[in-house]
Simulated assay, not measured.
Amino acid sequence: MRWLNLVLLVLYPVSWFAPLMRAGLLPIFGLSEISVISGLQSLWKSDIFLALLVTLFALFAPMLKTIGLALVQFHLLDRKTMPVLNLMGKFAMADIFLVALYITLSKGMGLGTIETAWGLYLFTACILGSIILGAIEGRKKVRQIEHASESV
């Protein structure tokens, strides 16, 4: 499990630069690829508060959670931090919800063309993998407590 978590430290940055979607006003003009990073660059120009939130949810929350979980797994951080780490993973999931909502709304308006791309699935898999790894690590604590109480 430790190594799967460490793989996320590599996959997250890949998913930030991977195309989440392809969007265009009309299909004949071609579609522009939008990634987490390119979306953030646009947000910083137009809405700084929203850019800060997305940066927190899309970049910092998942990485801090993954690093924190690795520290717990290698016994460098107390297991008592697990609830906070798991909450950080759930905050990261909010970013995926916003992207999915944006795609749904844009398709419903019929103003342009939007196609989901492989980066959205990679980013989603990273977030879900992190949540699952956190849940498994959290269960280890419960099993240790149960085992300790049976020994007494």
Rank of each mutant, 00 (worst) to 15 (best):
M1Y: 09
R2G: 11
R2C: 00
W3K: 11
W3A: 07
L4K: 13
L4A: 10
N5K: 07
L6M: 12
L6F: 04
L8Q: 07
P13A: 05
V14H: 03
W16F: 15
W16S: 01
W16Y: 14
F17T: 08
F17Q: 10
L20P: 01
L20Y: 07
R22W: 07
G24C: 09
G24I: 07
L25R: 14
L26W: 11
P27C: 03
I28Y: 11
I28G: 01
F29D: 08
S32E: 15
I34L: 15
I34Q: 10
S35K: 11
I37W: 13
I37N: 02
S38L: 09
G39D: 05
Q41F: 09
S42G: 09
W44V: 11
K45F: 04
S46M: 13
S46I: 14
I48D: 00
F49S: 06
F49Y: 11
L50Q: 11
L50S: 08
A51V: 06
A51H: 08
A51P: 10
L52Q: 03
V54D: 01
V54Y: 12
V54Q: 04
L56Q: 03
F57W: 07
F57P: 00
L59D: 01
L59A: 04
A61L: 14
A61M: 15
P62R: 06
M63R: 01
L64Q: 05
L64P: 00
L64G: 08
K65Y: 05
T66F: 06
I67H: 04
I67R: 05
I67D: 04
G68Y: 08
A70Y: 12
L71W: 06
V72L: 05
F74T: 15
F74G: 00
H75R: 15
L77H: 04
K80P: 00
K80H: 08
K80M: 05
V84Y: 14
N86P: 01
N86K: 12
M88Y: 09
M88T: 01
M88L: 15
G89Q: 11
K90C: 00
F91S: 02
A94D: 02
D95E: 15
I96Y: 04
I96S: 01
F97T: 04
F97K: 01
V99R: 08
A100V: 12
L101T: 06
I103M: 14
I103T: 08
T104E: 08
K107H: 06
M109S: 07
L111V: 05
L111Q: 11
G112S: 06
T113R: 13
I114T: 09
E115S: 04
W118G: 03
L120Y: 12
L120F: 15
Y121K: 03
Y121H: 13
L122A: 04
L122Q: 02
T124N: 02
A125K: 11
I127L: 03
S130G: 15
I132W: 13
I132Q: 02
L133T: 00
I136S: 00
E137M: 05
E137R: 11
K140H: 10
K140R: 14
K141N: 06
K141H: 03
Q144R: 14
Q144V: 06
S151Q: 14
V152G: 12
V152N: 09
V152D: 09
